[in-house]
Amino acid sequence: MGRIWNVAIVGCGIGRTHIFEGYARHPDKFRVLALCDLNPERLAAVADEFNVPRRTTSFQDLLEMADVDIIDVCTPPGLHFEQTMAALKAGKHAVCEKPLVGSLAEVDTLEAAEKTYGRRILPIFQYRYGNGVQKAKRIIDAGIAGKPYLGTVETSWHRTQVYYDVPWRGKWATELGGVLVTHSIHNHDMLMYLMGDVDQIFARTATRVNKIEVEDCVSASLRMKNGALVSLSATLGSVRQISRLRLCFENVTFESGLEPYRPGDDPWMIQAVNAEIQERIDDALKGWRHVPTRFEGLMAEYGPGLETGNLPVTLADARRSLELVTAIYTSSAEERAIDLPLKSDAVRYGSWRPQQLAG
Rank of each mutant, 00 (worst) to 15 (best):
A327N: 02
Y117Q: 02
F50K: 13
F295G: 00
R138A: 10
S184W: 06
P341K: 03
P123H: 04
V347Q: 08
S256N: 08
T308Q: 10
G237R: 00
A113Y: 08
A66R: 12
N251I: 09
C217M: 11
A316F: 07
A203W: 06
A142N: 10
A136W: 13
F30E: 08
A327T: 04
R262M: 13
Y349D: 04
I185P: 12
G146N: 09
T182S: 14
L38C: 08
P167D: 12
V291P: 10
S103Y: 02
E334K: 01
D265H: 10
N210V: 08
N187D: 05
L322I: 01
G22E: 03
L33A: 04
G13L: 05
Y261T: 07
Y329E: 05
Y302I: 06
R280C: 06
M195L: 02
A272W: 05
S331P: 12
R336M: 10
A142C: 09
V73I: 15
N226R: 08
E259V: 00
R208W: 05
L176S: 14
S231R: 07
N131Y: 05
A206Y: 12
Q161P: 02
A275G: 01
R138I: 00
V166E: 02
H18L: 15
L342Q: 04
E215S: 13
L191E: 02
I9M: 06
S256W: 04
A24Q: 08
F59Q: 02
S331K: 00
R244T: 01
A316P: 07
S331L: 04
C12K: 03
P354E: 12
L180M: 14
S256M: 06
R262N: 15
V347S: 05
L285D: 09
V347Y: 13
G177H: 01
R348M: 09
Q356L: 09
A206L: 09
L229Y: 15
G91S: 00
G170M: 13
V133P: 15
R223G: 12
E64P: 00
V209E: 12
Q134R: 15
F249K: 05
H80S: 11
L311M: 10
F249G: 02
R289H: 11
